[in-house]
C-alpha cells in the first residue's frame, strides 16, 4: 500500500500529462463521438442515430478493409517483433565488431523518406524490377511474379514493406530494455552450458516481457491505423486487396464525397478492436 504522502508525489508526476491530455483530447473525443451519430453530405449533416453503425454491416468495402487490416495484423506483427528481438540480441553483444554501424543501418528504414521509399519499393517490385529479375535468375520462378498487380501478391509486398520499415524501430526498444536486465543470471546460464537459443527463450524473453507486451500493443494500434505504406505503395489496390481501415477513413473524408459521420464511426471500430485485442494481450501476458 502507498502511504498518502508518497501518493501525492505519484499524482503530481502524472498530473501535468493528464491535464494536457484532458484539455486536448476530451472535447475532440466527445465531438467525434457525437459526429458519428450524424449522416449527410459534407457539412450538410443531420442526426442519424445508429444509421452509420447499420451501414457498416452492409458496406462491402468496409468489410474488405476490416479483413485486410486484421490479416496484416495477424501475419505481420509477430514476424516483425520476433525479428526485432533477434536483431537486438545480436547487436547487444559487446564483442561484435561494428555494432554501431549495424544498429544504425537497421534503424535507417524508418527514417528513410516515405517518398523515396515508396518510389523505390514500387520499382523494385515492378514487373521487370530487381526482385523478379533476381528470382528468375536464380530459377526460383519462370514467370515474373505480378507483385503489384495481383491482389494476393500485393498483400505480400505490403507485409514486406511494413516489416522492412518498422523492424529497426522496434529493435530500439529491445536494445534499450536489454540494458536494464540482470546480466549475472545470464552469465551464469552461459557458464552452465545453456545453449544460446534456450537462453533467448527462457531467460531473455521472460525478462523482456513488459517491453514485448508494450510493443505488441503498440504494433496492434499501429497496424490497425496502417496508412502510409498502403497509401503510397498500392493506394489500397489492386481491387481493394490492400485497403486498410485507416485508408478507408481517409477516402471517406478526403477522396469521396465527405462522409464525416460515417468516417468517424469507422474510426471507433478501430478503437473497439484495440480494446478487445489489448485486453487479450494483457490477459495472455499475465497468465504466462
Amino acid at each position: 500500500m502507498q502511504s498518502r504522502r508518497t501518493d501525492i508525489w505519484g499524482w503530481s508526476l502524472i498530473m501535468p500529462a493528464l491535464v494536457l491530455l484532458g484539455i486536448f483530447m476530451i472535447y475532440p473525443i466527445l465531438s467525434s463521438l457525437w459526429l458519428s451519430l450524424h449522416t449527410g453530405k459534407g457539412m450538410n449533416l443531420s442526426f442519424g442515430g445508429a444509421a452509420n453503425i447499420l451501414r457498416l454491416a452492409e458496406d462491402p468495402v468496409f468489410l474488405r478493409a476490416l479483413f485486410n487490416t486484421l490479416l496484416f495484423l495477424v501475419v505481420q506483427v509477430p514476424i516483425m517483433i520476433a525479428l526485432a528481438l533477434v536483431f537486438a540480441v545480436a547487436l547487444d553483444d559487446r564483442t561484435l565488431w561494428g555494432r554501431a554501424w549495424f544498429r544504425t543501418a537497421i534503424f535507417l528504414p524508418c527514417v528513410t523518406s516515405l517518398v523515396t521509399y515508396s518510389v523505390l519499393f514500387k520499382s523494385m517490385f515492378a514487373h521487370d524490377g530487381v526482385v523478379n529479375d533476381t528470382l528468375m535468375f536464380l530459377n526460383f520462378v519462370d514467370q515474373p511474379i505480378p507483385w503489384l498487380t495481383d491482389p494476393g501478391w500485393a498483400r505480400v509486398v505490403i507485409i514486406i514493406a511494413i516489416t522492412w520499415r518498422w523492424t529497426g524501430y522496434n529493435m530500439i526498444f529491445f536494445l534499450a530494455a536489454l540494458q536494464n536486465i540482470d546480466r549475472s543470471i545470464y552469465e551464469q546460464a552461459r557458464i552452465d552450458g545453456v545453449p544460446a537459443h534456450a537462453r533467448l527463450l527462457r531467460l531473455t524473453v521472460p525478462m523482456l516481457k513488459p517491453i514485448i507486451l508494450f510493443l505488441f500493443i503498440m504494433s496492434t494500434i499501429g497496424t490497425l491505423q496502417l496508412f502510409d505504406e498502403v497509401m503510397n505503395i498500392t493506394e489500397g489496390g489492386p481491387a481493394d486487396a490492400t485497403l486498410t481501415l485507416s485508408l478507408y477513413i481517409y477516402n471517406l473524408t478526403f477522396k469521396f464525397m465527405p462522409s464525416y459521420g460515417y468516417a468517424s464511426t469507422v474510426s471507433y471500430v478501430i478503437v473497439v478492436l484495440v480494446a478487445i485485442l489489448s485486453w487479450l494481450q494483457f490477459r495472455l501476458a499475465r497468465d504466462k
Binding site: 453530405k41 489492386p238 481491387a239 481493394d240 477522396k255 469521396f256
Partner: peptide
C-alpha cells in the same frame, strides 16, 4: 457529379 471517386473505386475493384 459529386460521386466520381466512389464509382472509380467500384470500377477498380472489378479489374481482376
Amino acid at each position: 457529379g459529386i460521386f466520381a471517386g466512389e464509382v472509380d473505386a467500384a470500377i477498380l475493384a472489378q479489374l481482376p
